[in-house]
Design a protein around this nucleic acid. Structure first.
Length: 350
DNA sequence: AAATATATCAACCGCAGGCCC
DNA sequence: GGGGCCTGCGGTTGATATATT
């Protein structure tokens, strides 16, 4: 793709907009519109700005009916629910909140809402914990947690956190069936265990996966004891390492659990396995789709069918053009399966 | 009161994808 | 069909404000 000529960098002003520039841009667009060409616009009106900057300024600040700050609790709930469900698709989230811009919501989430929900923790600490952990054999355990992107982990964590707010006693119930926690594929559950292990020193993750929940996970996913020269991860964050291999479970096509002792090849296998699971678009239920459709954006998806490639996230099994990007979109599907969207209906009581 | 740390948010950057020639 | 242009998006940066020591 060619890099567009958004800006002639040598001849363009950067930084904050002056009131004069704002007035010039605003009055022109209000009178003439953008003319469908942002690039030509600044030249037309004598602004030494690039078209990209003009567009951004208009959309995020000068456009009529833009609201700044003062997010309501209802808006918080919507943002939170959608973030858990679809990740950092700020433009889609913004579309559900009239007068809010994606940039505003993104900033609000990153600076306030996330902290409000997860507690004030320094992101740098989290990143350090995630970046620094290597096991004694030099195998970078982050490769496992990376399989679930930080965004996906954050959403998992958020979901659990919010569930615990809703049902504070549910995590003390040893009957897994009583949980509101969405049912995950066994491999996903295993991945969570591995992620737990990785985040053992991570205060944020410790907070999210507090011991009652971890105990419960152990109940859900009984750990295999084995002495077969393998690493066995357990939910309390310890691993016993007897060789360069890792024990994990997977599910064969027929559904039966298959236990594998692997080396790095096995890790790749697990990753691709998970990728397949996470990209499985066929397992969403009708009920889920009903819940999904409550949001306009999802309604649009339903209406457009497969015409809009941007809106076929979980109906498209193989041709997901987004899955190759850095976004964590592909990891949402299973989480939505059971109970994810009911959260919005129930409300989080933030 | 000054220095330092932290929070906030506007703006920038680069990538991906659609559109048009 | 291929390539370039334009747009939109999400992540990141940096300036400023505010809080803390």
């Amino acid at each position: 793709m060619g890099r567009g000529r958004w800006c002639d960098k040598a001849n363009v002003k950067k930084g904050p907009w002056s009131p004069e520039e704002d007035a010039t841009l605003k009055s022109y667009i209000e009178t003439n519109g953008t003319g469908g060409n942002w690039i030509a616009l600044p030249q037309k009106i004598g602004l030494k700005r690039c078209g990209k900057s003009c567009r951004l300024r208009w959309l995020n600040y000068l456009r009529p009916n833009i609201k700044h700050g003062g997010f309501t609790e209802e808006e918080d709930n919507i943002i939170c629910s959608l973030y858990i469900s679809i990740g950092s698709r700020w433009s889609i989230i913004a579309a559900q909140l009239p007068g809010r811009t994606d940039n505003d919501i993104k900033n609000y989430w990153n600076t306030r809402l996330k902290k409000k929900l997860l507690g004030k923790r320094k992101q740098s600490n989290i990143n350090n914990c995630l970046m620094n952990q290597k096991d004694t054999n030099g195998i970078d355990e982050n490769s496992y947690s990376n399989s679930l992107s930080s965004s996906a982990l954050e959403r998992l964590q958020l979901h659990m956190q919010l569930q615990s707010l809703q049902n504070p006693l549910s995590f003390y119930n040893n009957n897994p069936a009583a949980l509101v926690w969405p049912k995950l594929h066994p491999s996903q559950e295993k991945m969570i265990q591995i992620s737990l292990q990785n985040s053992n020193n991570n205060p944020m993750m410790q907070n999210a996966f507090s011991s009652p929940q971890v105990d419960l996970l152990e109940n859900i996913i009984p750990l295999e004891n084995n002495n077969n020269n393998s690493v066995t991860f357990n939910a309390s964050g310890n691993s016993s390492n007897n060789n360069n291999s890792i024990m994990h479970s997977s599910v064969a096509p027929g559904g039966e659990a298959v236990e594998k002792s692997t080396n790095n090849e096995g890790i790749q296998e697990l990753e691709s396995e998970l990728d397949e699971i996470l990209n499985n678009r066929n397992i969403i239920t009708m009920e889920d789709e009903y819940r999904v459709a409550e949001f306009d954006c999802f309604r649009d998806m339903n209406n457009n069918g497969s015409k809009d490639q941007n809106l076929i996230w979980w109906s498209n099994d193989s041709g997901d053009t987004k899955s190759g990007s850095s976004n964590s979109w592909d990891s949402t599907t299973n989480l939505m399966q059971e109970g994810m969207f009911q959260d919005y209906e129930l409300g989080y009581g933030l």
